[in-house]
Design a protein around this nucleic acid. Structure first.
Lengths: 213, 213
DNA sequence: GACGGAAGTGGACCGCAGTCCGCTTCACGT
DNA sequence: ACGTGAAGCGGACTGCGGTCCACTTCCGTC
C-alpha cells in the first residue's frame, strides 16, 4: 500500500537530512548510494581546490565518472547539490544549538543563548562562505529550505522565552536576515569588518530587541 | 586628456541614473539612445504581459528589433537591464525620501521618518515585486548597487539624528535587510501576511532599536 | 537460478545568458 | 560634401544548467 510508482519527492524533500525534524528514509538502491557517495566526494574535492563558484555540473559528473543525468537525479539541481555538500556541517550546527552544551544549547538564559547562536551561525557561515554564497543565488528559495525553518523556530522560541512581546515572526526574520550570506560577506570583504565586530553587532541587536523598557 | 579609448565602465556605473548622487552623463550617440529607448519600452511591455521571470534577452532583442549584442552593450547583463527598468520608479522613491514632504522627507522627527521610510519602501517593493525578485538573484551584487548605498546612508543619518549609539552601519543593515525582496515576498505569499502587518513590524523594530532605555 | 518490473543511468539535447568580432553608422573636423 | 576613426551594431558562437528517454542494473518473488 505504499505508493511506489510516485515520481518520488527525491531532491526537494530529501535535500537536507534534517535529524529529528523531517527526512525521507526511503531505501536507496546500492548503486544509487554508491554514486551519491562518489558524487559528494568528488564535489568536495572539486570545491576544495577550485572554489564552489567554479563547480559545474558537467565537471562534477565527469570527475565522479557518472552521467550528467545521475547528478541531477540525485540532487535535483545545483542548489540541491550545494545543500547536500553542506549537510554534514549544517547538521552538526543544528545539533549544537538544539542539544549541545550551554550557552549555545539548553541551560543558559535565553539572551545568552541568542548571543551564542549569532556568533556560532556567523562562524559557521564564515567557514563555508563560498558554498553558501553560491547557494544564495535564488535567495527566495532559501525561505522554504528546512535549515532556515529550523533556525527560525529556534530563535522564535528563544525570543518568546525571553519574554519579548510583539510580532515574533518578524523580529525573528530581522534577526536572521543579519546572518544571511550576502550581507555578511559584504561586511567581511567590501567593508573590511571582522567576525568579532559582526558578533558584537548581533549581540547589540539582540539586546535592543529583547530589552524591556 | 580624457581616456576615450577606455573600455567604458558602461553598465556597472551607469546602471542606475541616480539623480544628484552619481551618474555618467557621457554623451550617447543618437542611434544608441534610440535603441535604449526602444529596448526599455519593449522590456516594459514584455514584463507587463509575461512577467519579469519570463523575460529573455533574446526575446527582448527580437521584440525591439535589435541584435542581442546591442542589449548587452546597453545594459551589461540581465541584472543591469532590470535595474534600468526599475530606474524611474526607484528615482522617484529616492526623491521622495530625500526631498519630499514630511514625514517621509525632511521636517518630521527622525523616528517618524524612519517609520515612513519603511512603509514607503515596502509599498515600493510590493508594487514592483516580480522585477525586484528577478534582480535579487545575485543577492550580493545588490550590496554594491547604488540604490542600496543611498538608502543605507539615509537610514544611518536618521539613526544618528535620533541619537542612537552603537554600530550604526550594522543596525542599518539589520533594518534594511528586513526590506529585502526575498523575505518580504516570502512573508506576503508563503506566510500570508499583509503589507500592513509588515509595516507594523518595521515600526516595532525601529522603536526597539531607537528607544533609549 | 530466472524473471519482471521498478529504480537507476547516461549522454544527446534544449534554452538562455553572455562573448566576440567583422561590419555599419554616426558625428566631427576640414 | 567628404573622409575618418571611434562608437555602435548584430548575430554566430560558447558554456552551463537542466530535461528527456531509451537503455541497464538491481532485487524481491517464484
Amino acid at each position: 500500500m505504499t505508493l511506489p510508482s510516485e515520481p518520488v519527492p527525491l531532491a526537494p524533500s530529501a535535500r537536507l537530512a534534517l535529524p529529528l525534524v523531517d527526512q525521507a528514509p526511503t531505501t536507496e538502491r546500492a548503486d544509487a548510494a554508491r554514486n551519491r557517495a562518489k558524487l559528494l566526494e568528488a564535489a568536495a574535492a572539486l570545491i576544495k581546490d577550485q572554489g564552489a563558484e567554479h563547480l559545474t555540473m558537467d565537471a562534477l559528473a565527469a570527475a565522479a565518472c557518472v552521467g550528467k543525468g545521475t547528478v541531477f537525479r540525485r540532487f535535483g539541481d545545483r542548489l540541491g547539490l550545494l545543500f547536500a555538500v553542506l549537510d554534514r556541517t549544517e547538521s552538526e550546527f543544528q545539533q549544537a544549538f538544539m542539544f549541545g552544551p550551554a550557552p549555545l544549547g539548553p541551560g543558559a538564559d535565553p539572551v545568552a543563548r541568542l548571543n551564542a547562536f549569532g556568533g556560532a551561525a556567523l562562524r559557521h557561515l564564515h567557514a563555508n562562505m563560498d558554498v553558501y554564497l553560491e547557494s544564495d543565488q535564488q535567495a527566495s528559495a532559501r525561505y522554504n529550505a528546512a535549515p532556515r525553518r529550523v533556525r527560525a523556530r529556534h530563535v522564535t522560541m528563544l525570543l518568546r522565552a525571553a519574554g519579548v512581546e510583539g510580532d515574533l515572526e518578524l523580529l525573528t526574520g530581522a534577526l536572521l536576515s543579519t546572518l544571511d550570506p550576502a550581507p555578511v560577506h559584504h561586511m567581511l570583504t567590501e567593508r573590511g569588518h571582522t567576525v568579532e565586530r559582526l558578533e558584537a553587532g548581533w549581540c547589540d541587536l539582540v539586546a535592543r530587541i529583547t530589552h524591556r523598557c
